[in-house]
Amino acid sequence: MECLLALSHAGKCYGTRAIFKDVSCAVPAGSITLLAGANGAGKSTLMRVMAGLSRLTAGTVSHHVEAAALGYLGHATFVYPTLSALENLAFWAKLYGLNANEHSLLPLLRRVELERFARERSGTFSRGMAQRLNLARVLLLQPRLLLLDEPATGLDVRSAALLRAEIAAAKERGAGIVWISHDVAGDAPLADSIFLLQDKKLAYAGSAAAFMQGGAVW
């Protein structure tokens, strides 16, 4: 299976404090990988390294996709509050050299159920609506490698279901997905594999089914 991202003996320190060390793993195309671990285990830092947003202290990270094919959905919504939903999407579309006209952007807003708010300033949006606009931004890019850092934060049940459907659709499209989730037991059925960060190391990297059969609780 095609490998989209690989880490080899990766380590990250902030000053003298080690966040993780000797992490080696790969993300194949057409798969969902859950990144699990307790609070403060270094999941978000590892994901930022995967996205190229943070430099490694040791080891290497290799991307086998172009920068334009990498999607990142995290806690922060990347929304400009004084721009409308449509203007926000148009800005990101232009930055990625994509079609930024209304006809191509409105269907995306429809997909995340924000079409009727298309011309409203996104500063008036709730946290959940802003996150759905962020999801529309990621959908716009049609990423081959999708990195999700607790993307359901602030989403209601309906929006969380929408998000899960889009994640499943991205996998069907052949995207490789790494997903930090608070609800590993609930999300594991969607996943193919699990990476577990524990004691600053990658304690488990293997099949999600085997992980859950082992009775792990996260």
Binding site: L53, A76, T77, Y80, L95, G97, R137
Partner: peptide, 17 residues
């Protein structure tokens, strides 16, 4: 400061340029 409100800075860092 425009990029600091909702961490759009990260979005700019991810752009293919």
């Amino acid at each position: 400061s425009l990029e600091e409100v909702n961490a759009s800075r990260l979005g700019l860092l991810l752009m293919p340029a």
